[in-house]
Amino acid sequence: MNRRAVSFVEIIIALGILIVCMIPVLTMFGTSGRAVLKSQNLGFSIGLAHRVSQHLLVMPFDAITEVPLPGSPIADGPDDGYFNPVANHGTQISGALRITKAQTPDLWSFLRKYEYRYSLIVNSVNFAAGDRMKCVGIIITWKEGGKDLLYKLYTYVPDI
C-alpha cells in the first residue's frame, strides 16, 4: 500500500527534532547576552576605581583611611568624598544630590541592582622625613549572576 501522506506521529516527531536542534541556537543568545552584561559591569567598575584613585590625589594625605572589606556601599552610602554627594546643580550644600532612590533614582537603581561597594586597603610608608607614601588598594565589588565579583586597582599616593 503506497503511503504518500504524512501521519500525525511523523509531524510530532519532526517537531521534536526541530525543537532539539533549536536548543543550541537558543543557548547562544543567552551566552552573548551575559558577555555584554559582564563587559558593562567591568567597564563601569574600572571607571569607579579610577574615580576613587583620582579623588585620592586631592584628598588630604591623612584623610585617606582604610575602608575594610566587605566595603562601603556606593548607593545609599555615607558622604565619603568619593561618591557621595555625586552632584550639585545649586549654589549651596542643600542642593547636593546623593546616590539615593529619591534623589538619583536611575543611578541608584543601577548601583543597587548589582550591590556595588568599594573598599580601600591603605598602607602607609615612611621613606624619610617628609617622604611619605600611601599604597592604596582600591577594591570595587559587585554581585553578578549570583557571583561576587571584584576589581582591584593599586595606586600610590605621595604626601606632597
Binding site: K38, L42, P70, P73, G137, I139, L150, Y151
Partner: peptide, 28 residues
C-alpha cells in the same frame, strides 16, 4: 530596598573580573 551598610552575609571569596581568579582575604 535601600542598600545596607554591611551586607547580610559577607562573601568568603570573590572572583576577579579580569583574571577570573578566586580572591580570598589571604590573597588580598
Amino acid at each position: 530596598t535601600a542598600m545596607p551598610l554591611t551586607p547580610e552575609k559577607a562573601p568568603k571569596f570573590w572572583t576577579d573580573a579580569v583574571t577570573k581568579r578566586q580572591i580570598t582575604h589571604e590573597f588580598l
